[in-house]
Amino acid sequence: MKIAVLVKQVPDTETKIRIKGDSSGIETDGIKFVVNPYDEYAIEEAIKTKEKNGGGEVIVVSMGPARTVESIRTALAMGADRGIHIDDAGLQADSHVTAKILAAALQKEGGVEVIFCGKQAIDGDCSQVVQGVAELLGISQVMIAVKFDLREDKKGALIQRRIGGGSQEVYDVSFPVIVGAEKGLNTPRFASLPGIMKAKTKPLAVLKAAELLGESKPRVSFVNYRLPPERKAGKILQGQEPAQMAAELVKLLREEAKVI
């Protein structure tokens, strides 16, 4: 069973983001990059699925600059078998071309039955790539997955996904399928020390994003990055009768915050 994991390297959640002088993007110097947290669930589920299947291969695919290799190595240290790094030098990718490039890489690989990804990357938070890849490959997709049970025939899976209002849906899907992992799908394992040492010697192929993309062009151009406005200090109502304060609160919520 060939299993792929799509992984993105993103700034650590604790990073203080700074905008470049010309507003064309964020300053990447001095940023600590990590595996997108949702992708960690995807990596874990891929390795678990291989284990449950009693064999197979887990391939990590990641697009990004040279430093992206660190994230691929992290997945290899956790137990993935080999990596594909798609070098995106010179490309300002949007969700659309990212999906195109990843789909082309998966097609080139061929024979992949299950693809795990995070439901979104916490940098751009677009949450569009998984659906895009599904569409381009013409395969089923299940987003916001919280449970993945390999079917007994090992040719499909029962996948539970979270929908609004605390409800869940269960899909019985035959492979191939692409799954967008949500928090709670599993508890990602730690890379063991021997795993970290072994990762060094696992195969890692490099592809060029531009070649996989062909003639397509990004549809979104990034013209101006700005930091969100600083949050204003909260307001505390005090000193009045409770009933009065409640009335005041309702009024403020309606007129000032405009949330009711």
Partner: peptide, 15 residues
């Protein structure tokens, strides 16, 4: 080395 960086992060997360 990348391995030493990864090891630090792994042990830190574990701890």
């Amino acid at each position: 080395t990348p391995e030493q960086d990864m090891l630090r992060k792994t042990i830190r997360d574990f701890a």
